[in-house]
Design a protein around this nucleic acid. Sequence first.
DNA 1: GCTTCCGATAATGTAAACAATAATTCGGTC
DNA 2: GACCGAATTATTGTTTACATTATCGGAAGC
Lengths: 239, 239
Amino acid sequence: MSTKSAPDRVLSLGEKVKASLEGLIGSGELPPGARLNEVALAKRLGVSRGPVREAARALEKTGLVTVILNRGAFVRTMGIDEAMQVYEMNSVMFGFAAARLAVACTGEQAMALRAFLAEMDRAIEAEEKDAFFAANVLFHERILAFSGNAVMEQVYLEHTRKLQLLRRRSFDRTGSMSEANAEHRRLLDAILAGDASLARQLGEAHTRSGRARFLSAIEYRDGLQLAPAAKRPRSQPAA
Amino acid sequence: MSTKSAPDRVLSLGEKVKASLEGLIGSGELPPGARLNEVALAKRLGVSRGPVREAARALEKTGLVTVILNRGAFVRTMGIDEAMQVYEMNSVMFGFAAARLAVACTGEQAMALRAFLAEMDRAIEAEEKDAFFAANVLFHERILAFSGNAVMEQVYLEHTRKLQLLRRRSFDRTGSMSEANAEHRRLLDAILAGDASLARQLGEAHTRSGRARFLSAIEYRDGLQLAPAAKRPRSQPAA
DNA sequence: GCTTCCGATAATGTAAACAATAATTCGGTC
DNA sequence: GACCGAATTATTGTTTACATTATCGGAAGC
């Protein structure tokens, strides 16, 4: 049977449910603060409650949901203050990675980073915000990856993903994009020049700029973690 | 029935099992590489498999165990290389926290840190390695806590705990202890002097020193992640 | 009219049973 | 005697059912 369509199962049901939940949360169908009804989700996804529970617990550790005993799992609401802290941590790690890369950057890596830069330039020109966003994320992630510290990379990825819960595309204006890419270019120059100290400084500063852009972007957009607040007997975890 | 001995339940069974497993792993009864047999553990702890599974999944996210589909959960073995990466990340975060503290340290906080320093001095004098170890851990943790970045603090705590899996007390010689505490004192001086740049540098350097002490401590102690290796059909996850 | 208490309902926590998968063992063959 | 293969066994993955807990509605009392 060469036409074996089902690629068997390399993923447990729990992991598949987890992916589904991430999608539902990312798409906004499960807004921050919403409760994850186990039976409803299980029915909807065609599985039992077990895998749903496992997925919820896994997502709790990922930081996407909060689980309260006998109350259930809630889509996590990230406050601005916490987002600021994540940015701060990312800044430190990104700066370190940049410095590390400045002293040990292979030609292949440099080429890859340059390619992202070009792609972002192109996206800015074409005003393709999504393309820019994707390349931007990858540029940062690759720098972490190239730094050679897998642990730090994982922490960075995990928290960045969590962050994207809150800011769904804070690059509203094209101005932000070209501004950001200019910083990218300066950073890459420092890396290629082998100036670790400057690379670190620029890397940290760039993340802080990103934080500032994020802040100004959500300024009027507000509507943060405040749900309708009509009545929330089983819809809001703490207070 | 006023003699209701059970103090109700503020912790889910899964959490209690998780605590038990942490104890078993910490005590070495479940050595690195060992498989967590669900039925055996469930029977031993007097619960069902469900809570055991939940605890195992939770510990996976904590980094204490690795679970493989259809194979089970294994007590994680942390390689030296990974430990080095954790040290590196901790170094960056600790340095940042120290710098942050240098510009904003309350009198109360300074007093608390000084107290730990004194306690460590006392422990060195009395040659109480355990006491020194405890105070040392707290000193570092408090600096992270005082830095005001809860996210970073959590990441630091989580990975430090994971690290203690490997190095169970690497302060063999009293020399290491006094050396470490001298570094602590210099760091605290820089913090109290408000020299953020120096504090950061010293903080990073101190963690690197710790890493070096760790490395030299396990040098001859080897016996790292290598189990008896007699036969490991279901006892070793990857290879 | 408001509060308080109590029962009904729905949801989560836990346990036990069933199914699928990996590992072991035994048997056969080269 | 060593190697390969199928049946057996053990263990995990998943489902179902039961127990416990929290929430919601309404009636009684103030």
